[in-house]
Nucleic acid binder design. Structure first.
Lengths: 113, 113
DNA sequence: TAATAATACCTAAGAGTTTGATGTATTGAA
DNA sequence: TTCAATACATCAAACTCTTAGGTATTATTA
């Protein structure tokens, strides 16, 4: 089962920030592959969604970049800035609380069974 | 703490379908208030987002409507169609699985009861 | 060796959704 | 009487994603 893009939308930034918090630096393609692998193909980030998001996070001062050449191929690494590190923690804990809230909402027993 | 609209976006339809699954019929304003109340103000659905969503679910054949008059005031009730009922279950279980996947990704220690 | 797949960056048009404001009208409370 | 709450809803602007495409290098396979 592949999760609907709707669900992924709300958490894309959280995923990216958390991966970077755990991995110091990663490049875009690597992020898509890592997420695919970690979630057994259930979350598939498309490049069309990922790259604009990375650029937006960079523009917000949460990410810094450095370019490396692997042979002749360009590779652009993204890392968390200090601001990005605190944002990553914030986002993860927000998600945790959100899940608890959602569970209480979704676990409600019908009034008339 | 009020949750970011980004998080809510991904689960708006799930919330609406689940509430209707538990309550037989509800009207739009009631949904916003119920969610606010059940989540202690942490999820606030805006009408600008809710009504188009209700209309979209209705157009998909997941909801049926009936109009009632409370005094002179119009009230439009939404209910799940049979198709909507199975969709509600589907959405809730998709969300549950999504949470499990996200938790492994975010390395959150599950606080599931 | 030639074609294909995978790696790696990215953009852009169109589609879809949300925000924030606004509109209408009734009812209840101060 | 006036303001807040109830209750429906829409709309333009802003925003985001999807889908498709572009460029180029390296690895694989037929």
């Amino acid at each position: 089962m592949i999760f609907s893009s709707e669900l992924i939308k709300g958490t894309l930034k959280t995923i990216v920030l958390k991966l970077l918090a755990d991995n110091k630096k990663m490049y875009g393609y690597e992020i898509t592959q890592r997420v695919k692998e970690l979630t057994k193909d259930r979350i598939q980030l498309t490049e069309g969604a990922l790259y604009p998001t990375l650029h937006a996070l960079e523009a917000d001062g949460l990410l810094t970049t450095e370019t490396e050449y692997i042979g002749k191929r360009v590779r652009k690494y993204y890392s968390l800035s200090p601001k990005g590190k605190s944002k990553a923690k914030e986002r993860v804990s927000e998600f945790t609380e959100f899940v608890e809230t959602m569970q209480s909402l979704l676990d409600i027993k019908p009034r008339l069974a």
